[in-house]
Write a protein that binds this DNA or RNA. Structure first.
Lengths: 226, 226
DNA sequence: AGGTACGAAATCGTATACGATAACTATGAC
DNA sequence: GTCATAGTTATCGTATACGATTTCGTACCT
């Protein structure tokens, strides 16, 4: 685990089309931060970089545009989506909703083994707080929720969660908006969430808790700016 | 109102790229049912139809794929997404969640004029029931909810709603899964929803009602098959 | 000096062309 | 009669090429 880019598209094994390769390559560069927000994505340049022609690269960029990672302007070009506070709010709010739903739907299918694994991840997160390692903290945070979502019965919703995560990653929000107090709270909320799941709390309670968990991070950010 | 294809992409006015034109054209054909589920989308053929080359058409198809309207298989081709009952369930469940959220977020911003317009639409829907006009009923149903979502503060969520609608339209679900009793119920639920909004019920109540409104249609379908 | 207009460079959008892959068909063996 | 196999056709995937549009720089005018 602890991968960076998440999503349903990186599953293929053997004969990947160049279009897919280009998609994966550019996406990875955005997620990992090689291409930072505002970065100008010149088709010909990327094509040369990868050794492809422009056509598959163009296709890849368009796909990234559909996911919101890239902005494309006619006859002008593509840029990595920027750090618009409004966009951040929209994304977090949407994530809050879809994560809440995904958690509630998954909860009845989470067994004690998975719970234990989630606890282990959460313990690692606690360690990260001591060593102050925000990057790893964020990765582990995704791992934590990924464990819960392992048997999510609705792949569409899971896909929406992944899109949100990728979007946040491209915004690099986790690193520069690392509100210290919030992280500790987050770890505590994880434990509380696990207990709700263990005790088979009703779906509504779990959904509210999961939703609030994300919403609280948004609130923490909003309180720093306003 | 009473348009067929909904979405954020049809806003451009003047110089549309051929890629966008192709996207709009194919999308419209899928929504209106010219291309039915399972229909084989041959790039060269569509390109000839529109008078374009294959490149922009290909791009358009890929975009439709990202929205779930089309399935694309490497070296095989594209087909209009089919009537998979599982997909239907996923889509309806997801819609239930995002519509619920969109309604709750929009509710405080809906004024009495909008309420009146929504009531008018709902009255038309009631008429449709007497004349048995399922196609128009579905269109009006979208209109009804569109009125409520007019000032939705989160465009991302609204976009998800539109994607769900388009997907359902491509499945032609409304026409052949028209459970008679359900439609009457739906109209009643609309009125109930309007009253909740008028009385400024709390967000949670409104969200649950809106969510249940969609979920009930899914349940009605499930009860007919199982 | 500042602004405007013209021209050059960069980049995008699309067409055409061709190699690669899969689907189809026909032929022959068992 | 059925199955396997080889050849053909259809279609996709990608490269290359060129026209269209924007952007940037420079020279000229006020």
């Amino acid at each position: 685990m602890t991968e960076t880019a998440v999503g349903s598209a990186g599953v293929e094994s053997a004969a990947q089309s160049k279009s897919q390769q280009a998609y994966a390559a550019v996406k990875a560069r955005i997620i990992e931060g090689t291409y930072t927000p505002g970065y100008r994505l010149v088709l010909a340049k990327i094509a040369e970089d990868l050794g492809f022609s422009v056509v598959p690269v163009r296709e890849a960029i368009r796909r990234l545009e559909a996911e919101g990672l890239v902005k494309f302007e006619r006859n002008v070009g593509a840029t990595v989506s920027g750090i618009d506070p409004t966009e951040y709010l929209y994304t977090m709010q949407t994530l809050s909703i879809v994560e809440g739903a995904a958690t509630a739907l998954s909860a009845p299918l989470i067994d004690s083994v998975a719970i234990a694994r989630a606890r282990a991840v959460n313990a690692e997160m606690r360690e990260c707080l001591e060593h102050f390692d925000p990057v790893r903290f964020t990765a582990l945070n995704q791992d934590f929720h990924s464990v819960l979502f392992e048997h999510c019965p609705n792949p569409h919703i899971l896909d929406l969660v992944h899109r949100g995560w990728n979007r946040l990653a491209s915004l690099r929000s986790s690193t520069f908006r690392f509100v210290p107090g919030r992280a500790q709270e987050s770890v505590r909320e994880h434990e509380a969430l696990l207990q709700l799941i263990e005790n088979a709390a009703d779906a509504d309670t779990i959904e509210k808790a999961a939703r609030q968990h994300r919403a609280a991070t948004l609130d923490a950010y909003l309180s720093t700016t306003t």
